[in-house]
Amino acid sequence: MQKKTFQLIVDNTSGVLSRIAGLFSRRGYNIESITAGVTADPRFTRITIVTSGDDEILDQIEKQVAKLIDVRDIRELVPEESVYRELALIKVKAGAAERPSIIAVANVFRANIIDVGAENLIIELTGSQSKIDAFLRLLDGYEILELARTGVAGLCRGVDKVVYIAE
């Protein structure tokens, strides 16, 4: 089993997300995370999928997704040649006593405190999945009330592998 991140450029039609999600579920492929958002060209949506499987499965995923009529392009975001980011919002229970130490940890990770209540904080953290995982481990001693993670978005570096959408 290995992990792979794919970026897809798809036609911005209604139902395209359900077609892709449906393909993964009916063929039994894993989705660890999926994110979608419009590209610079509003006709297209960029989808980033983190998935896992053995070589044959990953090969099939790429081919089966490519086969969907709405899919313009699918390619792997190779870790060494790409940047990935995920956003997490973490609501932590924090009275006056815990607050300074949580803020200190947050500062080390360059996280932002975006909301402060009498009994809680909301922390915003952007980074790779492993950075977010590490941060969450450090919050182990505190009570996390709610956690929202966006899943990974990514781009490859440089100008060589840009998918031009010219018509």
Partner: peptide, 11 residues
């Protein structure tokens, strides 16, 4: 004609 069939069941 379907690239996804190639390698699906046999390499």
């Amino acid at each position: 004609v379907d690239p996804a069939e190639i390698g699906k069941n046999a390499g």
